[in-house]
Design a protein around this nucleic acid. Structure first.
Length: 733
DNA sequence: GTCTTGGATATTTTT
DNA sequence: TATCCAAGAC
């Protein structure tokens, strides 16, 4: 039995309140660095210590990584590992992602809701392929309807729980009407492939809740205690899902920080957390405001910045940590100067302050900024790692092998079938595939059945038909083998007998990196087999489809970490440098036109700042070369929002070429203000020029909070609403 | 089946 | 400017 007192022994009072509130809705507003993970893990353990059956506790996270960490920590506190068989019916607390939960539900209730349980899950590249196919079938131009954009729209609709039919009814203009047609076609194709996309997992689950009340009732009974992490990043579908599950017992605990919501662009709705108390008027609210991570100075800088946001709830972070050094704001000459300066400062900290390389990080808004920084570090001989997802599961060889398995498990999966039919080459040409597809269409059968009847398909040589039938025999023998449920054995057999291994050896040269990756996949399958004695190929595939591998990027082995601000969320480093604090970069140029986007950019900046424990460096380059064009930049408004007392500005742009060691040019805030456009020159009727939209006339101008917003009629680009401080407007005449 | 070339395109990224 | 992708050449 776990001892409740021990679980709670090292929690502060607010943390304790959050961990021990058992019944009724609970909102934990967890400020940056306030010990959030500690609180949630203790809470789960505490619930179990009260005698609540572990299986009735469900903690939902956003990433596999977060789920994995939480599982481990909960297991540690409970004194036994949290086992996870990837199924709905298990005796441990369920700690998983939204998608994983939905997948378990859909598979568990598949017979009830009329879903074949061997469905494939399509990842984003499969999804794009289907969107392209749908666009083509409808004879729409792929230029006017680019797959990426269309898919983003469809995904957005699904996350809003808007089905294809509903979307088709609601939309008006030409573009949307056609996207709606593509959406409908795309869904048909998914169905044909017996596949769901990521968004479907959520959508179908909610739809099943609505159409099958007994199923929902069962789940509500099962999950008496719900906990949702990173609640500020939930989208509408997730919101509905969570509340549907919580409706009966109302023991829903949500944890998050509105100030760290940075995923609106993929559907996150910050209002979910801001309005929690309207959803549950009897909710208990616990604010975790003590920060254990950063110095007083860093915290002050972060707080002052985020205070400019309106879409937030008041929260005041405080810390008992030391005051710390002032935040260094460095105005650099250009990106090379910037990179060299950051490198030099980090080297100094390493050599003189004895700070390890892995205690330092460089953050940037867009990946494009990493290049020059990387060069500078390499030239200085400093170790670094780039934390962009290595994307193990997106690698060609991994996808190829998994495609074999998917075809074996799900004969309807034509996207995978098409991928592997001639991989490695076995005499099944594109032409043959076309003939097979044609046969399928005219006989009303799927592609797989066409394959099995290749000898009846016109337009193919006997030889090609033979190749196809041989392939069919191969897959069928794999299917027979799959029955045994030994995934590793099957996978090895597939790689060997399909000729894929030989193919990799042939193309691999000396490195054989691809083969090594495939071997890693085999080991992971072996692991799956041993952990899931009752497992099946279908279960394995279901689990693996939701994997990505940001988790692979830990253990940087003593190197400076470079990453985007988005990737930095949840991490912490003694020393942080944020580069590119310029208008158009942070805030990003695409976010200039609405207040809410600006606020998200500000939150992004806030997230970056609050990653720093001891020292923070923020840089800006006066000139930056973007896409080959060297342009003078404008200082980020965020820099001007920082409290002057807590920052030290070093202006390197006035050093006149002598730069070595000259980190003394102590500038004032004027330097920053000088760089901002003077807004008073703009009034109604004024003619202006915009770098993108050209010439226009200000039709309306208004103060919105701290910003001046102008509605401008552009000659060529039409009517736009711009925020003066951020739009690089030039007065004309 | 692989190499070449032209054209478009250029945030952030998990599941 | 650089990179990615699709379509065409060998």
């Amino acid at each position: 039995m776990i001892d409740a007192a021990e679980i709670l022994s090292d929690l502060t009072e607010p943390q304790r309140q959050a961990a021990t509130h058992t019944d009724g809705p609970l909102l934990i507003v967890a400020g940056a660095g306030s010990g959030k993970t500690r609180v949630i893990t203790r809470r789960v353990a505490y619930l179990v210590s009260l005698g609540i059956p572990p299986s009735s506790v469900c903690a939902i996270t956003f990433t596999n990584k977060a789920a994995g960490e939480m599982k481990e920590r909960v297991g540690k506190i409970m004194g036994r590992p949290v086992r996870d068989f990837g199924r709905l019916d298990q005796a441990w607390p369920m700690v998983c992602t939204f998608h994983s939960l939905c997948l378990r539900v859909l598979r568990h209730y598949a017979p009830m809701i009329g879903l074949p349980s061997n469905f494939s899950i399509f990842d984003s590249s499969d999804q794009s392929k289907l969107v392209k196919e749908a666009t083509k079938i409808l004879e729409l131009s792929s230029t006017n309807f680019p797959a990426g954009k269309v898919h983003h729209t469809i995904s957005g609709q699904k996350n809003q729980l808007i089905t294809a039919a509903a979307y088709a009814q609601s939309v008006g203009d030409f573009y949307q009407r056609n996207v709606a047609r593509i959406y409908i076609k795309y869904d048909e194709l998914l169905k044909q492939n017996n596949a769901l996309d990521f968004d479907d997992l959520l959508l179908k689950c909610v739809l099943a809740f609505r159409s099958h009340p007994p199923m929902l009732a069962e789940l509500q009974e099962r999950f008496q205690y719900l906990l949702i992490d990173e609640y500020q990043d939930t989208n509408h579908a997730q919101y509905i899902l969570a509340h549907a599950l919580a409706q009966k017992h109302r023991n829903i605990c949500v944890v998050g920080d509105p100030d760290q919501s940075i995923y609106a662009w993929r559907g996150a709705d910050i209002r979910n957390i801001l309005h929690f108390e309207q959803d549950y008027p009897d909710a208990k609210v616990v604010k975790l405001e003590q920060n254990y991570r950063s110095t007083k100075t860093i915290l002050a800088v972060a707080s002052k910045l985020i205070a400019s946001n309106k879409q937030r709830r008041e929260k005041s972070l405080w810390t008992e940590n030391e005051q710390g050094e002032k935040v260094k704001v460095i105005l650099c000459q250009d990106e090379h100067d910037e990179a060299a300066t950051v490198a030099r400062m980090m080297k100094e900290l390493h050599d003189q302050q004895n700070i390890g390389w892995n205690g330092m990080a460089v953050f940037y808004r867009i990946n494009a900024l990493s290049r020059v920084m990387e060069d500078a570090l390499r030239r200085a001989g400093m170790p670094y790692v780039m934390a962009r997802g290595v994307e193990f599961y997106n690698r060609k060889e991994i996808k190829d092998v998994l495609s074999y398995l998917r075809v074996i498990a799900n004969p309807a999966d034509e996207v995978s079938l098409d991928r592997i039919a001639n991989m490695p080459t076995r005499g099944i040409s594109d032409g043959s595939i076309k003939s097979l597809q044609g046969f399928g269409v005219s006989n009303g059968v799927g592609l797989w059945e066409s394959f099995t009847r290749a000898d009846q398909v016109p337009g193919m040589t006997t030889r090609a038909q033979g190749s196809v039938l041989k392939f069919v025999g191969l897959i069928e023998s794999f299917r027979a083998k799959a029955q045994a449920g030994d995934v590793r054995a099957l996978m090895e057999d597939v790689i060997r007998r399909s000729g894929y291994e030989e193919y990799l050896r042939k193309i691999g040269g000396d490195e054989l990196e691809e083969l090594a990756n495939v071997n890693e996949l085999i080991s992971s399958a072996a692991e799956y087999d041993s952990e899931h004695p009752e497992g099946s190929l279908e279960d394995y595939l279901a689990g693996v489809s939701l994997m990505s591998d940001t988790d692979h990027l830990k253990d940087n082995g003593g190197a400076i970490t470079m990453m985007t601000l988005h990737a930095a969320k949840g991490l912490e480093f003694p020393v942080v440098a944020m580069i590119g604090l310029e208008e158009g970069c942070l805030p990003h140029s695409r976010a200039r036109e609405s207040e809410s986007e600006m606020e998200e950019e500000r939150r992004l900046c806030f997230v970056g700042i609050t990653r720093a424990e001891q020292r923070l460096i923020m840089t800006k380059a006066l000139y930056r070369t973007i896409r080959g064009l060297r342009e003078r930049t404008v200082t980020s408004p965020f820099l001007t929002e920082l409290p002057a007392d807590d920052v030290e500005v070093f202006d390197r742009t006035k050093l006149g070429g002598l730069d070595r060691g000259a980190s003394s040019g102590y500038g004032s805030d004027d330097d920053i203000d000088d760089a901002l456009p003077n807004k008073s020159q703009f009034k109604r009727g004024q003619l202006v020029r915009h770098p993108q939209f050209g010439i226009g006339k200000i039709a309306e101008i208004s103060e919105v909070g701290s910003h001046t917003r102008a509605v401008i009629e552009f000659k060529n680009a039409g009517r736009k609403t711009l925020i003066l401080q951020y739009a690089r407007l030039e007065a004309v005449g």
